[in-house]
Design a protein around this nucleic acid. Structure first.
Lengths: 207, 207
DNA sequence: AAGACCCCTAAGCGCTTGCTCAGTGCTGGG
DNA sequence: CCCAGCACTGAGCAAGCGCTTAGGGGTCTT
């Protein structure tokens, strides 16, 4: 039984109560990330949490609600990270560097959660999707403003601000696809590497 | 019935014979890209191809074989594009520019196929996966060699060649996730933008 | 005209899916 | 000591899944 690993994964969801609901969301994150939403069964989730299939429905109305909760929480955390960087003091280059480092390393550190929120969007119900899409637009806007600021200030050389924003976001998000804990890079190293590469993209590489 | 659209998608698979097998692979590409492999039913594929569910099994042994055929063909095309750029004449910057432009724009142009081959890898059987993984390693190696050449020649400023290779590949691949035909950028424009951004990443932006 | 071959369908098999519900044990207030 | 309320389970339902099978109709060769 993988119940111990599910408990580990649940650590990220410490504020979820009661305990059984927390174990379930941890198990779901693990299973969705490993196999994908559609390939994961409610029996599998319940089994990883050490419970019977029926127990899941005491805490969550449907399997989709579980995905939705994971998506909302994950997107809120990602947005918070981006907002912290965007609201920091310093030059546009400082803020961009900080944003990319934090955003990319989060996608590595929490690559299970990140994989779900980035690659299972289509499995959400229509209303839930709309809610998530709004959080994503906010994240995009924050990053675009940093890049726009840098371009306006002459710090950056950017030919296409929305396009560059899209590319930077895409680069960071895709970390969740390829990153594995047993690879040769730590999340911090990924963040460092990516911050440097992105500064190059906008023509503002630090010396 | 979506049979006409499936026919359209099948155009990319013109060399597949007989005609029914071609329509089926076109329908499968469309369905897998739209809903994902696990959420697509054999009835859906057959329906889009204008046939009964049983007809699928005359041309393909299993649903997984359909995914495998799409994956092999797609990866071979992607590899061919990378190989053409890597084998071209010119400086490392020329070749990198050419590689990224072609690779990124292919992922936009053929975003349905690309989405499947990049995001449904885990749904392949073990042996099929191993075969595909080999094609992916070849693509990675070709790009890494271009970047290494540029670094060796002093054309590029790269602190981490494997890491930068990974990032460039990741950037291009992820085009398949966000690109839609009704967006404001054409595949060629995406290729152009990305080539410019990547040259910035390696510190070799053209004037 | 007859037979062989191929492509296809209608029907359906065995299984798994998301989800439900009656009932069980455990806990805490009176 | 009792009983209400809660978390949970065992059993199972209806629906849908991947895939199989028996057989029908074209077309081509002989």
């Amino acid at each position: 039984m993988g119940a111990e690993r599910a408990d580990e994964a649940a650590g990220e969801w410490a504020e979820v109560a009661p305990d059984a609901a927390q174990r379930l969301v941890g198990a779901a994150v693990e299973a969705f990330a490993e196999r994908g939403y559609h390939a994961t069964t409610t029996r599998d989730i319940a089994g990883r949490a050490g419970m019977s299939p029926a127990a899941l429905y005491i805490h969550y109305k449907t399997k989709e609600e579980l995905l939705y909760r994971i998506s909302v929480t994950g997107h809120e955390r990602a947005l918070k990270i981006m907002a912290a960087a965007a609201g920091a003091e310093g030059t546009a280059a400082d803020r961009l560097c900080c944003a990319v480092r934090a955003f990319a390393s989060w996608h590595a550190e929490r690559h299970t959660t990140a994989r779900i929120i980035q690659y299972e969007l289509k499995a959400l119900g229509e209303e839930h999707y709309a809610e998530i899409a709004d959080l994503r637009r906010q994240t995009d806007r924050l990053l675009r403003e940093i890049i726009q600021d840098g371009a306006d200030a002459g710090e950056f050389t950017v030919r296409d601000v929305p396009g560059t924003t899209l590319a930077v976001l895409s680069l960071c998000v895709d970390v969740a696809r390829w990153f594995t804990a047993d690879g040769k890079r730590t999340p911090d190293q990924v963040g460092e590497l990516y911050a440097d590469l992105v500064l190059g993209m906008v023509g503002a590489r630090r010396p």
